[in-house]
Amino acid sequence: MAFDYEKYLRMERMPHMWCPGCGIGIVVKAMLRAIEKMGWSQDDVAVVSGIGCTSRTPGYLDFNTLHTTHGRALAFATGLKLARPDKHVIVISGDGDAAAIGGNHFLHACRRNIDITLIVVNNYIYGMTGGQASPTTPFGMRASTAPYGAVDPAMDICQVAIAAGATYVARGTVAQGLLLERYILNGLKHKGFSVIEAMSDCPVQYGRRNRMSSAVEMIQWIRDHGVPVTRAKELPPEELEGKFVTGELHVAERPEYTEEYRRLIEKAQKAAEGAHG
């Protein structure tokens, strides 16, 4: 049965601004289905973003929505979550937003293991500003600022998240929307900082410069370049060259930040009482 996306959309703002075939809409849909499965009241959910194509998401969604500055969504979200640890904070970010200008905030949100879910839509490019190379543009691929092919090696956002201490890390694709929904759902359920990277297409800014000018070509490219994690384990490294690993890459248990802070408050208050008593 059709999913009732309208329940979560600000319909007066639709249709959205994303280009034909842009994968962001697929990710947003997966996120909305996952939120529905959580059974959360819309009043209890905040969706926070930075700057870029993906960061326009909150404007279309009927939650508490916050469109912040470039790269800083996790910083705002951390304040929001600490002020109301009982509520649900989701950050949606692009690859440039999360991994370049927001890289520091990304590392430290992972380190704190704060109960926020970060969805990174990775379309390999700065779309909104005109197709400049991003930290995830694959080596040799073209961008408006990499006219001869990117010389910077690409960053693996999930590996960085794991190394920095995120406790749920998964990678899905817009070619597999139902799996993506499952990863987002598991991220929302997870107590701690969860990162879901969604490999996505930007036919207009990325595909067009790299011989994939249609959304269909790009989605097929994404499908062909993803390797499920169990299979990846059996493959020699050279066969994984130029591919990305999909699936739930890391699930761990570690104290969650707002719960730790609640304990700290109890400790501080007990100590203060002792000092006065």
Binding site: L66, A75, F76, G79, L80, K87
Partner: peptide
């Protein structure tokens, strides 16, 4: 950024 987020709450 964090203080703006907390203030909004």
């Amino acid at each position: 950024g964090a203080i703006i987020g907390a203030s909004l709450a």
